[in-house]
Each structure stands twice: as C-alpha cells, then as structure tokens.
C-alpha cells in the first residue's frame, strides 16, 4: 500500500483529505505544520505528500524546499493544496519542487484527478 502524508494546520482539512486519500488506497499519516512534517519524513519518507501553504512554525513552501534537500527527499510526489491560487503563487510552488497543485476548496474528484495526473493512482 502506498503512503500519503497530509500536512495542514486545520484538523478538519486533514480529516476530510485523509478520508478521500484512504479511499484511493493510501495509508495516511498527518502533520499539523511543516516542521512536524519534516520530522515525519525523516522517520519515514512517504510516497505522496498533500501540502498546505499557510501554516504556523514552518509553512508549506519552506517545508518543500527543505524536503527536497533531504536524503531521499526527491522521492515523494508533492501535491500542493492551497487557497493561494493565483498564477504567481502556483508558479512559485512548482518552481520550488511541487509536482502538482490543487486550489482549495477541493473535493474527492479533484484529488483523484490530480493524483492521476502525477501517476499516483
């Protein structure tokens, strides 16, 4: 079974996204901010990461740049998931190493479609 780390400071978003990703046959772990997520990746590098942008302690963009410098950090497919959905922000996320971008709000069909785009399902 593939694994997916869901990084978002909203517990509700983590739960909703978690259920959707579980339905796509992923084993789900959660983190509430970028620092927490980095710690989780160092212990166990996931196959996929669904990543929020604005979070306390360490935001999504800083986490992504740090992740890509970690040992094995190029492996996870990172799908950014954010309300910052203008072309400049999306471009910045993609240049920083994201593989796909979901604009919030999302539903199950969007996550399925985006995971399919990057070959996760």
């Amino acid at each position: 079974m593939k694994s997916c780390l869901i990084v978002d400071d909203s517990r509700v978003v983590r739960k909703v996204a978690g259920r959707i990703v579980q339905d796509l046959q992923f084993e789900v772990t959660e983190a509430g901010d970028g620092a927490d997520a980095l710690k989780s990746c160092r212990e166990n590098m996931p196959d996929a990461i669904l990543l929020d942008w604005n979070m306390p302690v360490m935001n999504g963009l800083d986490f992504l740049r740090a992740l890509r410098r970690e040992q094995g950090g190029s492996k996870p497919i990172v799908v950014f998931c954010s309300t910052e959905n203008d072309a400049e922000h999306i471009g910045e996320a993609m240049r920083s190493g994201a593989n796909e971008f979901i604009m919030k709000p999302f539903d199950a069909d969007i996550i399925h479609s985006k995971f399919a785009e990057v070959g996760l399902v």
């Binding site: 072309a87 069909d109 969007i110 785009e117």
Partner: peptide, 20 residues
C-alpha cells in the same frame, strides 16, 4: 470554474493555456 479546471487538467496545462 474552479472545479472544472481541476478535473482532467494538470496545473502545467492550466497555467499555460488559461488566465485567472
């Protein structure tokens, strides 16, 4: 709309072919 452009369309194709 927001939901239409996220179904079947990669973010690369969205940015290359659409403007917000």
């Amino acid at each position: 709309g927001h939901f239409d452009v996220q179904k079947g369309l990669s973010i690369h194709r969205l940015l290359s072919n659409f403007s917000r």
